[in-house]
Design a protein around this nucleic acid. Structure first.
Lengths: 248, 248
DNA sequence: TAAAGGTGTTGATCTGAATCAAGGCCGGAC
DNA sequence: GTCCGGCCTTGATTCAGATCAACACCTTTA
């Protein structure tokens, strides 16, 4: 169950799929080489916990492939997902000893890890890394704030539409398909995980997805495979401005 | 109405009240001097808008004194506050041209501003500033995520208690009173602003404050002056762990 | 002195989402 | 095969908070 070790590790930074989006994005060849020396890969299976909130965390790292979630819990069991980690996203906080949130792999997951101390040393000596990390953190802060609007003010239907549009958008960005025809993607989350992200119950998630399907906003094949015939219609349902072009 | 200019500006960085907490916290004397050359103060009156979302923003800066709010709006008028800016907090995003949120002064406000371009230049050449900004941004990200739990999973009563405990804590940190006796502070926000922060209506805010008062969790004098006889009781009502010592 | 506007409280009613409950579907183990 | 457990859907009912509405209080303006 704990085989989070040597497996399908992308051999070199040169062919790394996240080379140009992760913390290392701005590194020169020599900087990359030094990073290379302190990095190691870890594999996690779908469902496996990467780290528990409060545990000592002696590494930081990037998601190479797969999806993980960041979740916060109350003592009475209520939980709220506070982040969705996709390829190139950074995990962990330099300068902090323990993990602040539970990190769970929702699909099979590959991470590129750095032992914390060496990474922090490099961070202090390598402006290219510090700059990129600042930029990524600012992006995450924006995303968190956008999500606050979703959590605080949107209806259940709007919440679902918001989540779908985010996933659709990211998927389109990753797969780099031209904007031709309808968007198609698979939901990487269970109904329960969606509920956790949206501050809803899984029953409400299920009902609203059914409703969006009934109303033709989305087409479902099976439980997870989604087609969006008209993306602007979806944005409209999300309560977002459906005007100009987005993609961050 | 627009006298956001020369007024009660703290003369030198040396006696600046936020000298050791703001972006400039880690700067050496020479760095501070260079910052000094590109800084200027602006005053805003309570209620005044500092900047509108979408407007061109040619400065960044720190809150020196007073309180401002960061608010996001939907086209139909629903709004969600996404940040509460207290003294030493940073406003604006290096590298971005337009403001992402409405920034409004809720009390009289003094800001220490830097024109964006010179500041960005310094940011790139001054690791002490970049490091501090990263640290502050990571703190804000944590705060935003904590707030996501509040918005997504807490009841109205818990939300109010959460807000009160945050204000109480920050106030105690600023005024540096020893933990003797009950905490006393003034609410810096109207009921409507609180509702905006908590994702509630102002009526619900009013009712829940009345309820907490009725139950002896807080004591009110007038509408804004609050006494908290037992802080742990308040934390308990907020649904937070009332155990060990906090203060970030 | 009154009128007006901003702020806050409280009551009555309505409603969207939670809760409680029953099954359906599907893949894996035996 | 069929039994089981995870995941999902749908229905009935409840309830927390929204909405609609009235009014109290205070400061400013006329």
């Amino acid at each position: 169950m704990l085989n989070e070790d040597t497996k399908a590790m992308p051999r070199e930074c040169g062919d790394c799929p996240i080379r140009h989006r992760a913390v290392c994005a701005r590194c020169e060849a020599d900087e990359l080489e030094r990073l290379d020396q302190i990095k190691y890969y870890r594999n996690f299976e779908a469902g496996q916990t990467v780290i528990w909130a409060g545990d000592k965390m002696d590494f930081v790292g990037s998601v190479v492939s797969g999806i993980a979630t960041l979740t916060q819990a109350m003592e009475d069991g209520r939980t709220q997902m506070v982040g969705l980690l996709l390829p190139s996203d950074f995990v962990g906080r330099p300068g902090r000893v323990t993990a602040a949130y539970d990190v769970v792999a929702t699909t099979d997951l590959v991470m590129c890890c750095f032992r914390k101390q060496p990474f922090e040393d490099m961070l202090n000596r390598t402006p290219h890394i510090a700059q990129r990390l600042l930029e990524m953190t600012l992006d995450e802060l924006d995303a968190a704030r956008e999500w606050m609007l979703v959590l605080g003010r949107k209806t259940a239907r709007e919440k679902i539409a918001s989540l779908l549009s985010i996933i659709a958008r990211r998927d389109a960005a990753l797969n780099m398909v031209g904007r031709t025809g309808p968007m198609v993607f698979d939901l990487p989350l269970t109904r329960e995980a969606m509920a956790d992200y949206l501050g809803l119950t899984l029953e409400t998630v299920s009902r609203q997805i059914s409703a969006l399907k009934r109303d033709g906003v989305i087409v479902l094949e099976g439980k997870r495979h989604v087609t969006v015939p008209d993306f602007n219609r979806l944005l409209d349902e999300a309560g977002d401005d459906s005007d100009g072009g987005m993609l961050a």
